[in-house]
Every structure is written in structure tokens, then in C-alpha cells.
Amino acid sequence: MTALLDISGLKVDVPGRAGTLHAIRGIDLSIGAGECFTIVGESGCGKSLTAMSVLGLLPRAAILSAERMSWKGQDMRRFSRRQWANLHGPEIAAIFQEPMTALNPVLTVGEQIIESFVHHRLGNRKAALARAGELLERVGVVPVERRLAQYPHEMSGGLRQRVMIAMALMCQPKLMIADEPTTALDVTTQVEILKLLKELQAEMGMALLLITHDLGVVAHMADRVAVMYAGQIVETGSVASVLTRSAHPYTSALLDCLPTRDQPLTPIPGVVPALFGELEGCMFRNRCRFAREACADPVPARSVGEGHVYRCLLEANEVAA
């Protein structure tokens, strides 16, 4: 199976007054048709920037470089403005973290939903409205007629996120990018939205790139996962393998952060390092209880089999012990 999205050696630098911020420092990523891939990590680890890189919507100041970055075999690094525009909607669509601010306050929900469909010439306004109606019905934004005429401020956060989902689905994308889609919502709404995303993914046969900081979400949703720390993927593989046989101390520490009923949660000591200047070795070493001197040298990637890869000097079974 050829991957929809195939990226290797992705780097994003953001030059600034305090020096250049190396926000993403060489990550590999590939997403196959119909699969659910999650990127998990703390704030500032570069997971959202990774999503924006794939969308071609990085901030103007950011500089992207990659050894390979392709969509269905086409080189995305050479995409013209027009090619990006053709990609957005029918190929890749996105929903974002803040449903409260992600919709335009002065346009009706209906106008915003149909825009992409009409612009990509998939049909006229009437056809667009019909499809918007079906999708809103499907995601549970009813009664459709009234909702289409409403403005975003007349809806709750959960409803707005459902509107965002319907909007993203309008052109039947092959890949949906969801950047922390439930972080800003209350817990019960979170569960509903995630469930909906999972169902829609199966129904539409699309791939889902889900960005989250919540390993619980990963366990529920994903086929494969990449754990990001300080602009690098420290561990990746199938969800079953990574979560049950985590080989990297950071993954294992994240798992310890999950609240359970009978055990107190264990926070990770220390803070995320600033990503300026020359960065060598494992960035987690100053927070890691297994750290040793050699961790300051470049750390090779090691395989545990079936695509499960991690970057650490420890043997695969040492962390769990």
C-alpha cells in the first residue's frame, strides 16, 4: 500500500530576535489511506506545527525543509498556490482546537459550510446546501434549516465543532487533520466528538491525523501513534505496541501521567527545553531518571519490530522494569 502522505526529515525553523527556534527537528511520518494516526505530546513539542506543515499553513516567518514531503507521490514542497488550493478541501481538510474562534463571526454557518464545495466546483449552491444539510444532520446539528441560517455566536462550543467537522467533510477529503479537536470542550462533549470522528472516518473511508496531548484519546482512536518531544518523534509504532510495550522513558512517563482511580498520578519533573541554538543528543535527558552521560551524544533510532521505533540508549524492556 502506498502512503497518502509521506514525509521524512521534516524541519521547521522560526527565526526570531532571540535566535532561531528549531521547532521541528527532523521527523518522519507516513499516513496510509483510511488509517488513524495520532501525534501526542506536550504543549510546544511541535505537534501543531507538524499539522500546519502538512496543511501548508505555517506562519509566514516559519521556514520549512524536508528530505521528502509527498502527497500521493507528488512533491508537496514544489506545490504552487493553486495546487495547495486544490489540495485543501477535496484531499486534505482540517478542524482546529478552538471552535469558538475558528468560525467567522460575521458570516452565517451555512455560508461558511458551502463555500469550499462551491469554490471547488463540485456543484452549485443548491447542491452544496443539500450536501451541507445531509452532513449537519449526520453530525447532529439540527434542525438543519435553522442552523444553516445561524451565526457561530448563536451556538455552543460543541455544536460549533460539529459544524467544523461537517464543513471539513463537504468535499470528501482523503485525510482529515484534527488539531486537538476536543481540548477546548467539556468532557462529555469531548467523548461525543471523538466518537463521531471515529464513526465518520470509517463511513467515509478517510485517513485521520489526530493531534492530541491525551494518551487516553490515542488509546481510543488511533491505529498508529507518534510520541513527540521537543520537536522530534521519540517513539512511534502501532498503538497496541507503543502503549503496552513503551520503550522510551518519555512515553512511559506520559503513561504515568494518566489519572487512574486507585493510583496517584506522577507528573514529569522539570520543563520542556527551549529549542534554540545547537541541539545535540536526547532532549529529554534533563528530566529523565535513566539519563547518563552518553545521552548528550546523538541518539540512534532503534527498532522493536513491526514499525515500532524509538530513540533512546536503553534496551526496549529496560523502561518497564
Binding site: 477535496p90 481538510a93 474562534t101 467567522n104 469550499s116 468535499c171
Partner: peptide, 22 residues
């Protein structure tokens, strides 16, 4: 800088439309 401009851009509509309408 607003989020809804990013949303509009992610829909693949023309930048003129993003500027004018959104």
C-alpha cells in the same frame, strides 16, 4: 491573525475571497 482566517485558508478558497469576504 484570527483563527477563522486559518480556517478559511484551509478550505482552499482563493486568497482574494479570504481577504475580502472573511
Amino acid at each position: 491573525e484570527q483563527d477563522y482566517i486559518r480556517t478559511a485558508r484551509s478550505k482552499g478558497i482563493s486568497s482574494l475571497r479570504v481577504m475580502w469576504k472573511h
